[in-house]
Design a protein around this nucleic acid. Structure first.
Lengths: 253, 253
DNA sequence: TTCGGAGTTATCATTATTTGATAACTGTGA
DNA sequence: TCACAGTTATCAAATAATGATAACTCCGAA
């Protein structure tokens, strides 16, 4: 980040990006002084960067409160992303079919460093907001989708990431024993799927299967969220696993 | 863009943004020389900006071809946008209900300058890719959603934008007569909805109704796309208008 | 295998641009 | 009415970006 001696690194641009990244789910609108606090930049720098981003259409500004907000341009960037990632176009029609068949919430997840990111979401019943919108990141080891994608990698790599990648304790039942997670990943390799319960949210069952690239490694995972009140894990497998595997197999084409 | 005498304008940041905006649906990956051609920047500037954006995680780079691509960070920005816009959270559960009830493709659209932008999409059957993903922009005057949002504005403004805003001729049946569009908008005000056919795509019927803010002006529009092969306009109104109006009314809460 | 050339990476002197400090302004609540 | 927190404007100093150019890589053709 703080790359010194890199003569090609343009720190002014990096500072501007810091402003954009200051916005997140708990910082939905920020004043100049908020931005100063969140970025650690000079007051003058923040003033200039925010002003420029506003003129360039990247930030909206409430004329009353003078606070900045993400603009529609942020969605246009997502649009460009969707076109650029070939997995998306291949997966989307299959996900729609799947969603239609099951009437449950279907997601496409991808690896993004040591997290997964949800890149497509088809919400089908009332779940909480964060679980309905794309772009959410979660630690890969905490999630069924992350584990099933890791399961397509060599053993050595699995042990390595299980030892080092971040974990969060999202619920009191979240699994944080790294050895057990490693075992869960290796079991996923045998099974071709991964199922979890109560990991990010209580009473949520999550079932995921990998979308394999030509080299056999996972490019993505299709994941389905089911209420743990209505079903137990065995029922979920019986009811949803076959269509899930059909879906992921179909995406390979 | 070419801002002179604005001492707060940081042109270096603006140049970096130009790199990001060079990517779109027909430019999904770009080499350095592509970027030079598309942005008109100096070769050296492009080299530095792209390098910085790569280090900052905003661009991925294919190690083989050396081409740049949008990164997952672009979806994270969309995530932040979704949290920041209060209409989204209010509309989403209602859209899910609506989508569930009708089994058709439902969208939330918002005004963005003289275009509309789709901010939520619940695709429910196979439609073309561009119509399934968020962030797409279309000239407001060409669309049912745009017209119905404009219909909540004063007459003077409607006449003004009808005279000046951009139009595209997307199909041979696209309406390009500006007076007729103005009449269509005023009719939408009387009706509380707008219906179009063959405007952006042949055999597509589009029905939209406004989501009104406290001042009565539209904050957004809910729009539904229906096959013009299976239904005619009268049938569409009969079948979908009541639930559409329920949906938009419900979002006001 | 060598060669040519397009495209990418690296270097550097020059100075235009950004910088950060500070002053002036604005509006809101006491 | 005042005080103050937050926002906007100004400016001299020099850092950090610039653009020209050179060196390097890689790929395909001969």
């Amino acid at each position: 980040m703080k790359n010194k001696q890199d003569s090609l690194y343009v720190s002014t641009l990096a500072r501007g990006l810091q402003i954009l990244r200051a916005f997140d789910e708990s910082h939905v609108s920020l004043s100049l002084t908020d931005l100063v606090a969140r970025t650690g930049l000079e007051k003058s720098a923040v003033q200039r960067m925010a002003h420029t981003l506003h003129l360039e259409g990247m930030l909206d500004r409430d004329p009353k409160t003078r606070r900045f907000r993400p603009s529609h341009a942020w969605l246009e960037l997502a649009y460009a992303y969707y076109w650029s990632d070939p997995v998306i176009a291949r997966a989307l029609p299959k996900l729609i079919e799947f969603s239609h068949a099951e009437g449950e919430t279907i997601n496409l997840a991808q690896m993004s460093g040591d997290h997964i990111i949800y890149s497509l979401r088809l919400p089908n019943q009332r779940i909480h907001f964060a679980a309905s919108i794309v772009g959410r990141r979660l630690p890969a080891l905490n999630t069924a989708a992350g584990r099933v994608m890791l399961s397509t990698r060599p053993d050595a790599e699995i042990d390595e990431v299980c030892a080092n990648w971040p974990l969060v304790q999202a619920t009191r039942k979240t699994l944080t024993d790294r050895d057990e997670i490693a075992r869960s990943i290796k079991a996923a390799r045998e099974n071709g799927y991964c199922i979890t319960r109560d990991q990010m949210l209580l009473n949520e069952i999550s079932l995921a299967a990998p979308v394999r690239g030509t080299d056999g490694q996972a490019e993505a995972a299709v994941q389905i969220s089911i209420s743990g009140v209505a079903f137990d894990e065995r029922q979920v497998l019986e009811k949803f696993l076959p269509t899930l595997l059909d879906t992921t197999a179909g995406i390979l084409g």
